[in-house]
Design a protein around this nucleic acid. Structure first.
Lengths: 256, 256
DNA sequence: TTCTTATTGATTGATATCCAATCCTGTGTT
DNA sequence: AACACAGGATTGGATATCAATCAATAAGAA
């Protein structure tokens, strides 16, 4: 019953990251205010939050739209992400204790089990979380927030991408990264991070016109449980027929 | 006549960075709405922007206050800043062309002249700008924004600090950094950045209760030119009698 | 027909007023 | 002195309203 605008901003963020609201989609104040059953002012505040986070773009007297990053933006975001993760890697290789390395290994192990048991959805989530855990071990909330924001923007980027991915050696990458860092082999570790992100961004192909398949009303419907808590994460699937290979995942490798 | 909330957020940011609004200072909606002659809602939106930027803190049903970062926050902010600047340094040492190095040298030269001519205020500004120019040369707007936000927060930190500074070898640091990077001596350069920030944060002494010397109304008065453009940067001076040595500057060295 | 211009509609930016929830404070009681 | 309660003040939000601007359509001229 409080901070409605923050709660709604969170829901919108979730919907964007789930690719239910695609880049370029109009976020009309009136429509959203009806969807969420709040006044326009609350929606406006939510949209301001989204814009500050880089997920929405507000054009004067034209309204808010889901951000549509350019190819240039994509490269810059991945550059920044690489820079941050390399920096964190350097810190961790110096400062992380055995418990930290153990936590990372354990995380990889959980993901390995998920993959082995064919639970792709869980493997996806764990793969995403690896980087978050990685940065959290730096024990720096400021860095965590910066990193989280960058990750959100990469997730948004994935709405714009048409490419065939495979799920080959993600775990190997993570495991190898841990191994290199723990041994203090910083340079190869940083090159691994860089190569990883580079290969991802190289595979990006921007579709210039992304057409909103769902209206905001349709897209947001699963998140509205009559003002109750979170919905149990609805399937963000698009039409399974076409680009079924382009699932959402932080760690994607491009088929060359 | 547009985007009032953003404009007001900018003014408030400026006032905070000028230390006219000190940490802990209450930012009452009614008071600010009277100061700026807008409705409370516009002020609310401005405060949301400030909070998203880490410069204000909104407590439910209690209002907004200028953020009062803890010592822990200070260390984390400087850690993040170090990480970012080190990363940018690494990128620049690889990628920056002669024109870029020339621009950096030219900037240092301008600051040197300002110092030589006793223009401390200008030297301050140029010293702050050096880091901004440095990051801008990475040609990455995302990194620029992240860095700018971190710099804003360090500036806020300086409101909380009681320490004696001197202006010794700031230029030497900058010049040395350029020299090391251009020669590809990355490691010493990164250590220089780290040492610089470390020495700064070590000198921090938190005053737990900072009392607002100026009411927001008084503090903001110089920025209001009857809705006209920017005021010509009013002197952010506190009372000159007491801690006159603790001027605002990005590059401060602690007297051991 | 086609291009240019004008009108109209829709949407945003912003204000004023009102109400509920909550916090702070001051006072009174035990 | 400690506690409880009531009242004031402030924030969070709803609603209604107006102005400014954009977009799309309709009207008119070449």
């Amino acid at each position: 019953m409080s901070n409605r605008s923050q709660a709604i901003a969170d829901i919108l963020t979730r919907a964007i990251l789930d690719h239910r609201l695609v880049p370029g989609c109009k976020l009309g104040e009136r429509e959203l205010s009806e969807v969420f059953d709040v006044s326009r002012i609350v929606i406006r505040q939510s949209l301001i939050r989204l814009a500050d986070d880089g997920l929405a773009q507000i054009e004067r007297n034209r309204g808010a739209f889901v951000a549509r990053p350019s190819m240039q933006d994509a490269m810059e975001i991945y550059d920044a992400l690489t820079l941050v993760e390399q920096g964190v890697a350097a810190q961790l290789s110096d400062r992380l204790g055995p418990a930290g390395w153990a936590e990372l290994r354990q995380h990889v192990e959980r993901q390995r089990k998920a993959v082995a048991s064919g639970n792709d959805a869980l493997a996806d989530v764990l793969g995403q979380e690896f980087h978050t855990v990685f940065v959290r071990l730096s024990r720096n909330k400021v860095m965590q927030e910066i990193h989280a924001q960058l990750v959100r923007r990469t997730t948004l980027l994935r709405s714009l991408i048409t490419a065939d991915f495979d799920y080959c050696n993600l775990l190997d990458d993570h495991a190898k990264l841990i191994e290199l860092l723990e041994k203090g082999r910083l340079k190869p570790a940083m090159e691994l991070i860089d190569a990883h992100h580079r290969s991802v961004v190289r595979g990006y192909i921007m579709d210039r016109q992304v057409f909103p398949e769902l209206t905001p009303r349709e897209a947001l419907e699963p998140y509205l449980d009559g003002k109750a808590g979170e919905p149990p994460k609805p399937a963000p699937r698009k039409k399974a027929g076409e680009n079924g290979g382009a699932r959402t995942h932080t760690h994607v490798h491009v088929v060359k």
